[in-house]
Simulated assay, not measured.
Amino acid sequence: MNLLIVGATGTLGRQIARRALDEGHQVRCLVRSYKKAAFLREWGAELVGGNICRPETLPGALEGIDVVIDAATARATDSFSIKQIDWDGKVALIQAAVAAKVNRYIFFSILDAEKYPQVPLMEIKRCTELFLKESGLNYTILRPCGFMQNLIGDFAIPVLEGQPVWVTGAASPIAYMDTQDIAKFAIRALSVPETENQTFPIVGSKAWSADEIVKLCERLSGKDAKVTRVSWVILRAARNFARFFEWTWNIADRMDFAEVIATGKPLNASMTEVYQTFGIAPEETTTLETYLQDYFGRILKKLKELDYEKAKTQSKKISPKKLTF
């Protein structure tokens, strides 16, 4: 199939592109920067310049496309706001896909989006789901709730480097999933008719609390974590302060997501029927223990190699053969 992947340079989008190429699909990626997307071309993808916030760039990108896989979302540092990207941009992309007579549209939303109308990103995702369903496109909506990859910067690296691990009190456990596995579901949907015009949760096998993740990192790294706990009062104050400045609105909107986690309710869902529908075995997906074990194993091995090389270099410097008296 001819696929257009939007958001292909992101944490999830790049895994979708890699998976699609590995399975023999023709992949085109809509990119804002050819330089940042150079690795996608090296993998074998076609790059086309464009931006969902500039609708005039979309028709050309959609020529000859069978399926749109939409993994784009606003980043905290984007010059465009969450509303501009995740609502205005998505509306423009869906409308352009309709005009181009695209056969399929796969959209990534967020688990339980309909339960939090007070959280901007969640409400925008819910409205986008409705707009897509009413567009007439043949759609599949996938709803993850957290990526394992994000835990490396939040937990693993701080533990290894002896830096503070920031934890909020009574945070909701989250069923994180490896983005490679999420990509597997997205590409599998293309060949499973039962996934058409349906919405599915795509989550990990267990919801993990922040404290559980810290303990797991400590066990796998052999180091004690320096945990710094932050109250929701401080987070709310920081969010309100960020709203004073236009260039920090995205940060404030992202911080609103803390309201979801503050409920203490697990972000999780049953995957039994999802696995059956997609024809994927649960044991094929990566658990958080396995993911972090692999990460720490590779990092600790590398650190030992570096220590060995350093020791060997120092040993040469003080070799008795080079000493004179």
Rank of each mutant, 00 (worst) to 15 (best):
E134P: 00
G153N: 02
K184L: 15
I182M: 15
T199V: 11
A170I: 09
D112I: 03
K125V: 01
A113H: 05
I141H: 00
T199M: 12
A171L: 02
T179R: 08
E134N: 13
V102M: 04
W208E: 02
V203I: 10
F155C: 11
E194V: 03
I82M: 14
G153F: 03
I94M: 09
P193K: 11
E196M: 13
P120L: 09
A96H: 00
D86P: 10
Y116T: 04
A156D: 05
P117R: 14
G136R: 13
A113L: 03
C145M: 07
E129Y: 04
F200H: 10
Y116Q: 05
G204E: 05
I152V: 14
F80W: 13
P173G: 05
K90F: 00
Q163E: 11
L111Y: 10
E114F: 10
Q198F: 10
L111Q: 10
V192P: 04
V91P: 00
D88K: 01
F108K: 00
Q84F: 08
V165T: 11
I174C: 01
V91N: 00
T199Q: 15
S135W: 03
D86I: 07
K133F: 03
P117W: 11
N150Y: 05
N103Q: 15
L111V: 07
K101P: 01
P164S: 04
Q180W: 13
I82Y: 15
C145R: 06
E194A: 14
P193E: 08
A170R: 15
E194F: 03
V167R: 02
K101W: 02
T199P: 08
F147S: 09
F131K: 06
S109A: 09
E161S: 10
R104A: 07
I82C: 12
P173I: 08
F200T: 13
I82N: 11
G204T: 08
T140H: 05
L160W: 02
F185V: 05
L93M: 14
D88T: 10
K90R: 07
I152D: 04
A186V: 10
S172D: 01
A207M: 06
K133H: 06
V159H: 03
W166L: 15
S109L: 04
I202M: 10
Q118A: 15
D86E: 14
S209A: 06
P164A: 07
P164I: 03
A183G: 07
E194P: 10
P164C: 07
V102P: 01
P120T: 11
A113C: 13
Q163W: 09
P144L: 12
A170P: 05
M148L: 14
I182D: 13
P117K: 13
P173Y: 04
K101C: 08
F147N: 06
P117L: 11
L132R: 00
R143G: 06
A170C: 12
F155A: 08
A175T: 09
P201Y: 12
G162D: 08
C127F: 12
V98Y: 09
M148P: 00
L142H: 12
V159R: 04
G136Q: 13
P120S: 08
I157G: 01
V192E: 13
S205R: 12
S205P: 02
Q84A: 15
M177G: 04
W87T: 02
N138F: 09
S205V: 11
A97E: 01
S205F: 08
T168S: 14
L121I: 15
L93N: 04
A207G: 05
Q118E: 15
S135I: 09
